[in-house]
Design a protein around this nucleic acid. Sequence first.
DNA 1: AGCAGACATAGACATCTGTCAATATCGACG
DNA 2: CGTCGATATTGACAGATGTCTATGTCTGCT
Lengths: 118, 118
Amino acid sequence: MPKSLELTPVETVACCSPLNREPLTADQAERITPLVKAIADPVRLRLLSLVASHADGEACVCDLNDAFDLSQPTISHHLKLLHEAGLLDREKRGVWVYYRVNASALGDLAALLGGVTA
Amino acid sequence: MPKSLELTPVETVACCSPLNREPLTADQAERITPLVKAIADPVRLRLLSLVASHADGEACVCDLNDAFDLSQPTISHHLKLLHEAGLLDREKRGVWVYYRVNASALGDLAALLGGVTA
DNA sequence: AGCAGACATAGACATCTGTCAATATCGACG
DNA sequence: CGTCGATATTGACAGATGTCTATGTCTGCT
C-alpha cells in the first residue's frame, strides 16, 4: 500500500527468485542494489542490529546516538538511508523519534541470498 | 582451513548471531561489511546470479564477459572483488578461468539477516 | 621460438559516499 | 511567546569506488 508510484527498494525485492535459480536481469539488479547498499556500511549494520534487538522492537534516536563515537548529523544521515531503503520505519512521538525494523524487508533479502523462497 | 592468518570476510560471518538477537559489536560490523559491500553493486549481483544459476555450478569468464556491456578489465575487477570476499572460488583450467559460488557464504549471510540460525 | 588469445594488473579519472560543523525545524514547557 | 532540547538539513571536503585504456602474464599452438 504505497501512497506514491515510487516503490522503496524493499518493496521491489520480493519479486525476484533466489540468486541460484536464474540470473538476475539488469533491471532487477538495479532495483535490489539500493537495498544491499543500505546495509553495506558498518555503522548502518550496527544501527540495524541495535534497533532490531532493542526491547519493544523500537529504539529512540537519542539512545542510538550514544552508541557511536560519531556526530549526531552523521547518525541521522545513516538512519535516513535505512529508512529510505525501507528497512526502518520511523515514528515521531513528541520530541523523540523512534525507529523500528521492517521485518519482512530483511527476510526477503535473506531469501534472495539464501535460496529459501519462504 | 585457511592457509594464512588472514580470514576472508566470508570466513568471519558465521561467528555472529542474527541481527535481531543482539547488537553487533563494532568489530563484528567491520568484519561483515566487506562481504555485504561485495554484493552491493548491480554488476556483481548479476555476476553472482549468473555463476550460481549456471549449469555445473560454474561459469567461464569468457561467458560472463559477453553478458555485460562493460570492458573485460571491469568484469575482471568485479570478479576479483567477489573472489576476495570469499563469495566466488576461482579455478584456472588451461587458458580459461572458471568461477563457482561458495554456497555456505551466501547462506551464512542470509542467516545473519533473516534470523535463521540454520 | 614466436604468435595469439584469455585473463589480470596498473594508472587515470569522474562520481559516489561518509563525515563534520553550522544551521534549520519542530515540539514541549515555563 | 520565547527558549531549550531533540532531530533533520545543508554545504564542504577527503577518501572510496566504478570505469576505461594500455599493458602485462600465462598458456596452447604452429
